[in-house]
Amino acid sequence: MSTNSATVSTTKTWSGGRSPFNVSYGKLMMWIFLLSDAFTFSSLLVGYGAVRFSYPPATPLIEKISPMSHVDHNFVEVLQEKGVFSEAHWPSPDLVFNHFPFLHGIHLPLFFVSLMTFILIFSSVTMVLAVEAGHRNDRKKVGIYMFYTILGGLAFLGCQAWEWTQFINAGCTLESNPFGPSQFATLFFVVTGFHGFHVFSGVVINFIIYLNTKVGTYEKRGHYEMVEKVGLYWHFVDLVWVFVFTFFYLI
């Protein structure tokens, strides 16, 4: 035994044969992947910020449209004539994302996207409950919570499909849109599309993990660490949505 115990423990941590971070190789690599993915999303969101900063902010409406009030079919055209929607400045998200399913002709800004946010938060919770059940080797509960998580993911994707349909029907393409500068729709499609694709791949991976749980792969293996790893990915998707929600809808 050495007299300098501090040196001994440091050498032991990094001298091989054990995990210096006290996590498995797979989990560490999932974290490294998420770091790289965080850089990707940062670039997209900061790029959005730069383009948005390069336009003057939206002109405020003379009379504010209050939530729940009635909007006409020619809402967009009227605002274009008033100069509220123009190529010269960035549109206010308040006046663009104001639809809600089955409630046509009513001005409901932020309502639908708040619903989407809560769907994603709740599916994050069911995922973390699946991880917790995995720690107790409770195969049945892991299966149930994974199933709820998949349902949440599908519900979110459905909402996003509806949101995109609304946006495309309004005349938005990657090159032009009736609300303002062309980059407004381009960045919306690219960033929410990239996030949506993450949700989609998350649902696919969750489904594979769900099947493995049902088949008993992890029970045989003795631990449910795969649930934790895919859980990290799922929470990351939720985390990215927090910032998409902030930058695209709130600000």
């Binding site: 006290n22 974290w31 770091l35 995922m127 990290l232 929470h235 985390l239 927090v242």
Partner: peptide, 22 residues
């Protein structure tokens, strides 16, 4: 973001080395 990473992603309970690396 802090609550998602610290609590849901369990970062609060990981070794400080791992948290710093990420």
């Amino acid at each position: 973001a802090y609550y998602i990473v610290a609590s849901f992603m369990h970062m609060k309970h990981e070794k400080i080395d791992l948290a710093a690396v990420i």
